[in-house]
């Protein structure tokens, strides 16, 4: 039986992770739209959404055919690789080893590249712009689909995870349509930190469960694992940040 901890964790992780991905996709689509017009931007984005729908329609039924233990193992290991990678990057950004992701900078860079392409090639501009929007939405969308499957499938909560992801994408799209600017004020690294912690906790839980581990406390162990990863990350930040500042 699914308890409240699982429901909140699945919906929350799916919403937060999808929010970050949607913000990144929005930045590129906005850059294309403002630099080259909304027709190629929206056509590319719509084509990517159609491609994503096809991928989901094709792969979705396969999920039901995979035994639950095997699904938990595959999803658990992929979540560990995905979540710990996010968490590692968030820690490295917090301590200043790598630069913070800046939506304004990404927007400026994409606009510059599209403007440079305009000078080089007068024809086929819509095509280049459309493909840029298509690629951005497809790649970020695939990440959203993976996150939904990863946090939802192993507990039969795909619907709940999908609602969380859809709510995030709709929210970002509405805000983007309203302000026509990248969402630079979103605390992206803090969100990635939190999502990295949650996805790693889910990954550890499901990988262990697939190997027959009976975690103490059942699903509540996910929260304990989240606290463990958060604690380790906090210790790393506290220990490493001053040392790196000294050497800077």
């Amino acid at each position: 039986m699914t308890n409240l901890t699982t429901i909140v964790s699945v919906a929350g992780a799916s919403f937060a992770a999808s929010f970050v991905e949607a913000v990144e996709a929005l930045t590129i689509v906005l850059a294309v739209g403002l630099a080259r017009g909304w027709r190629p931007a929206l056509t590319g984005a719509a084509a990517a959404l159609a491609a994503l729908a096809l991928i989901v329609a094709a792969l979705g039924p396969l999920l039901g055919a995979i035994p639950i233990r095997a699904l938990q193992f595959i999803v658990g290991v992929l979540l560990l690789m995905f979540g710990l990678r996010w968490l590692r990057k968030a820690i490295l950004r917090t301590i200043g080893v790598i630069a913070l992701h800046d939506e304004d900078a990404a927007f400026q860079r994409e606009t510059r590249e599209l403007t440079a392409a305009e000078r080089r090639q007068a024809r086929g501009l819509d095509w280049i712009a459309g493909v840029t929007a298509f690629k951005a939405v497809l790649l970020e969308g695939i990440e959203v689909v993976f996150i939904v499957i990863a946090v939802g499938a192993a507990r039969g909560l795909l619907g709940l995870a999908s609602v969380g992801a859809l709510a995030a994408c709709v929210l970002v799209a509405v805000i983007g349509a309203a302000i026509h600017r990248p969402l630079a004020r979103v605390p992206e690294n803090a969100l990635k930190f939190a999502v990295g912690v949650m996805l790693s906790a889910f990954g550890l839980f499901w990988t262990g469960e697939s190997l027959g581990v009976d975690w103490p406390g059942g699903d509540a162990a996910i929260l304990a694992f989240a606290a463990l990863f958060l604690g380790v990350a906090a210790v790393l930040v506290v220990l490493l940040k001053p040392q790196l500042a000294e050497h800077a």
């Binding site: 560990l80 710990l84 968490l87 590692r88 820690i91 490295l92 301590i95 080893v97 790693s200 550890l204 990988t207 262990g208 581990v213 694992f225 463990l228 990863f229 380790v232 990350a233 790393l236 490493l240 040392q243 790196l244």
Partner: peptide, 17 residues
Amino acid sequence: LTLALPAALAASVVRSA
């Protein structure tokens, strides 16, 4: 798993730092 995975994360971050 509970011990090794956070340790792997810590080692990776320390190496990069």
